[in-house]
Amino acid sequence: MTEKNVPMREALRAALIEEMERDETVFVMGEEVGSWQGTHRVTRGLLEMFGERRVKDTPISELVIAGAAVGAAMAGLRPVAEIMTINFAFLSIDAIINHAAKVHYMFNGQFKVPLVIRAASGWGNQATATHSHTPEPIFAHFPGLYVACPSNAYDAKGMLKTAIRDDNPVLFTESIALYSKPSLIPDDEYLIPVGKSDVKRQGEHVTLVSYARGVEWSLEAAAMLAKEGIEAEVVDLRWLRPLDLEPVFESFKKTNRCVVVEESLPHFSFGSEIAAQLQEAAFDYMDAPIKRVSAMDVPLPYAKEIELMALPNAQKVVDAVKEIVY
């Protein structure tokens, strides 16, 4: 089997092309997905390949982008709707939470919503307070919706293909900082199942739990710690819903220590949830407090120096680990 080094945006693009070729009910819609070639270039060339019928540019109307995609999915299509950045998904949230996530249940299974909403997520580049959100955990709060948060190009491709084929609505977030980062991707088709986390690095001293971009910091931190003789196990959850914590519990029973690494905010957070579930499931195995590394509890400012101050990074993960590994 041959494989190639492919950046995440190209891996995602390949997933879209493969699924559109495989299934005529799959179509792409969103702001600038067509003639602009995609704000993040994930939909580059799709308009030329599939035409205006299947690559639908929309007005700047995040609410109806999500809502119309829900309706089209209920009616039997498989929309892949792009919300240019997840910051704008706050304008779509009623369609996502009150409709996409609810109609299957509320009408007792009469309607399915095989929908994917893709949204670029994350901060950096001084995007400022309104354009720097990572609110994946907010969406993961609600039953009825899946939330996919890949950490690398390989996972992103397999997860997007699975999300498109699944009969449930999926919010699929793509870390902007990862778009250019490559993974080795096989030429042959592969799928990554819904709700399966993945141990990205083995280690016996501490468990690092993360998803999306946090996995990168965790792996970087693990490499730094290894130089000091501390071996970290890194669990990439990949999906915040369905949440697969079994590998976390297993790892924790071995390491007895855990640091949760998240790009998002600390208040009512992903880290809070993991810590709560860990102490319930594995209290007897706990040798130290569960630590959380997250963004600071502030709106993100413009100036680079203080923006970076507010954000997590590998060094902060290393520092947190050293507080509990002694």
Partner: peptide, 16 residues
């Protein structure tokens, strides 16, 4: 008015 957006999507499917 939430259902107006769904109506749009259902109508799109017919056109599609």
């Amino acid at each position: 008015a939430g259902h107006l957006s769904l109506a749009t999507g259902i109508a799109f499917k017919e056109r599609y």
